[in-house]
Write a protein that binds this DNA or RNA. Sequence first.
DNA 1: GTCGTGATAGCCT
DNA 2: GGCTATCACGACG
Length: 203
Amino acid sequence: MKEPDVLPRSFYARDTIDVAKKLLGKVLVRDTPAGRISVRIVETEAYCGPRDKACHASRGRTERNGVMFGEPGHAYVYFIYGMYHCLNFVTERDGYPAAVLVRAGEPLEGVEAMRALRRKAKKPVDLTSGPGRLCMALGIDRALNGADVCRKGPLYVEDSEDAVFEVVSSKRIGVDYAGEYRDKPWRFYIKGSPFVSVRADKN
DNA sequence: GTCGTGATAGCCT
DNA sequence: GGCTATCACGACG
């Protein structure tokens, strides 16, 4: 069996909504000293640059969101609600601040390692169904902010065989403050996947 | 099963 | 000082 390719920088260096859709079904890999953990990405959201009021970059460049202003194909990891981390991939051209939030995955490899990192998950489906949960299960924190995900390292994304699935779009979660951008249908997930986040069916 | 609420701290005004 | 790209828990039934 041929080794899967790591998604190249050109994959991320294009329209953010495109990237968000195309990431569905791809394999997110977390290499740790304790072993390899991987999930199939089943849910994403697009945050489309300075005009998108839901995007952190809409209030200008800061220490926190600086990575988003840089080269595509890097991880933008931030801390939220005083407790959780969220994982994003920087998109578009260098200098244009946009990113895709990875909201949920389907566990593939390293399930035991994920369970150890997320003792509170009662069922397998609770391991990675939500942006905060996903980061817990994969041991992702701000140490990985800025990491290059276009080559093998602690964090990267592999291409996958083209599986057949239907993509559903809906409003993004938790962005009610974003004015006219609140209702943009920039959340995408794999139809029927039991691993999408808990608020999946709200629209 | 669904609903409401509290936790908790970094970030920005 | 207010807000946040969330989650877990307990109260219901």
